[in-house]
Design a protein around this nucleic acid. Structure first.
Lengths: 136, 136
DNA sequence: CATTATTACCACCTTTCGGTAGTAATATAA
DNA sequence: TTATATTACTACCGAAAGGTGGTAATAATG
């Protein structure tokens, strides 16, 4: 019951970028600060850029920064890039046929929770997260 | 944001056993009915037996059945066998230092959801699940 | 123009998860 | 007591996730 490590990385980077919104940050510096493996992070950043969540500038002095306003980048979008959006609609037991009319045994217990999680991800932007001001 | 496939298997098997509580079921039959890979399921059943969730009888006519009353086997125990109990207390971003006093940026958003999920797993027994009477 | 700091790209490596195969041990039943 | 249906155990296989290394392309700056 968790995000993949890559999704954790993605969220952490996006939050960090939102806390340093005006700057352009290199993979090197993000790697050092967030302690995410350099090459792996480099690939991840390209993926986020490809998905349009960040902009990238090549060459010396280049790097990454957010592509849009903080309040227009939603948590579900970040998760969606890595795990796919359907990960948030999935039956907890993995049955593709599971729905309210033909529920699996866990459906009644899980559905309200699933829907709250989804709601949270669809309502939370980087602005809210940035305003939380992590202490960690 | 999901259980591992193995955890899904484990829950499905336990629910099936609870629906056929009096019987002793072989891996062969469970495999055919639930369409879980035979040898993989065999190993999983041994794991569940080792954890004390099911009892096993060897030899011809042998097989598995629940070890305890339906209302004394909790969902968290099944998940715990496969993913470990700490999976339900884990910070959503993977920070071991994350807590209410020193939260990560997602903590405030995630904590209420995490705690509801945990609550559900600690309050749900096979009895409730069996009574759901899945249509799938 | 040469140097340097960066991203881009590609191939590979390692670990974990899911899955398979074969053989030994066990117990029932004919 | 022999055949058979089961679990037990161990080793291996394959795919996916996570991680590394090297080199080319790009662009700023001296």
């Amino acid at each position: 019951m968790r995000f993949s490590k890559t999704t954790e990385y993605a969220i952490r980077v996006m939050i960090y970028l939102s806390q340093h919104n005006t700057q352009r940050l290199s993979v090197q510096s993000l790697h050092k600060i967030l302690r995410i493996p350099y090459k792996y992070l480099a690939r991840l950043m390209r993926q986020l850029a490809h998905a349009g969540l960040v902009t990238v500038t090549q060459g010396k002095e280049g790097g990454y920064s957010l592509n849009r306003e903080l309040n227009s980048i939603y948590l579900y979008q970040i998760v969606g890039v890595i795990e796919g959006l359907d990960s948030m609609d999935r039956c907890i037991l993995g049955f593709s046929e599971c729905n309210d009319a033909f529920p699996c045994s866990l459906h009644t217990s899980w559905e309200p929770l699933r829907s709250r999680i989804k709601e949270m991800m669809y309502n939370t932007t980087l602005l809210e997260l940035q305003q939380q001001g992590e202490k960690i």
